[in-house]
Design a protein around this nucleic acid. Structure first.
Lengths: 151, 151
DNA sequence: CCTGCGCCTTCCCATCGTTGGAAGGTCAAG
DNA sequence: CTTGACCTTCCAACGATGGGAAGGCGCAGG
């Protein structure tokens, strides 16, 4: 298989496949006499793994760690789970940040007429001296940590 | 005020302030004889606006648009609201993506022992031929659109 | 055999927002 | 006058990805 073939098979662009090789995420492909990269079914499997991990939002570094564990048949499943749940925690942190932004914006927008008059509390608040977030962020915004949820 | 002063006052680094100037988001500061940038209270206000918009997750381009509207006293508040709600929609899309990832990972992790044995359904699934997402994404994942929520 | 087309190769550049450093000028206090 | 904190510009990097140029390879049709 040439690089275009696994690109199609995995949904990863040829650019990215070369990039993954260059940065050491995947091993350098063997080369045909022409200099073309040649891929085996094994490589295909690896790249599919990469693709899926990427779709789950793992960074390349994390995928590297996961690949190492994947190849190590003596790994402890706890190690894998730790990476996964650490990532879940990061995802949840991000989600909370986005939610705070969204809530604040919705709050501001709810006070904005949204017509052709220039008066706009969104702009007024952004330009004011006080803090923006009128988030009724009462108690307990801290949720159960990911680690404690799935044992 | 020198650049370090508004940096402290706004929480934006001097690097970023120069970058914002370079890219045209903010107008070039006047200069002292020494070549130092000198900032007015007006500049301070503008940069505070930028800071807040940035904290709400707006891109620099969007902040540029918002600044333009901010300075235009004949703007229609609808224009502002449109930008804001468009951004809310983007935030919600992102949140949904993160949630899907998180849900999938939690699902996988819930089947993983997480002990010192090597058997791990997380890795197994990532390496398998089939699709990853066993998301019980039933009906109605599509939420009410941001635009229709806050009128 | 030549031509054309599609694939492959390497190399460089751009994105976006941000940080870091190097090399040098300015300012105020001691 | 020296010292240290500030300022200046310029250049590079991050992470993951896309775009494109310039040139080589492989195969099918004439």
């Amino acid at each position: 298989m040439n690089i275009g073939d696994i690109a199609k098979a995995t949904g990863i662009s040829t650019k990215m496949i070369r990039y993954y090789e260059e940065t050491g995420l995947i091993r350098p492909a063997t080369r045909a006499l022409s200099g073309y990269r040649v891929y085996s079914d094994n490589d295909l499997q690896t790249l599919r793994f990469v693709r899926r991990a990427r779709d789950l939002g793992f960074t390349v570094k994390q995928i590297d760690d996961l690949l190492t564990l994947w190849r190590d048949r003596t790994r402890a499943s706890a190690s894998v789970k730790e990476i996964a749940m650490g990532h879940v925690a990061a995802l949840e942190k991000k989600m909370q940040e986005l939610k705070d932004m969204s809530d604040t914006l919705l709050h501001l927008a709810s006070h904005c007429h949204g017509d052709d008059r220039p008066d706009c509390p969104i702009l007024k608040t952004l330009g004011s001296t006080e803090a923006v977030a009128p988030l009724s962020r009462t108690r307990d915004r801290r949720k159960t940590r990911a680690f404690d949820r799935v044992r």
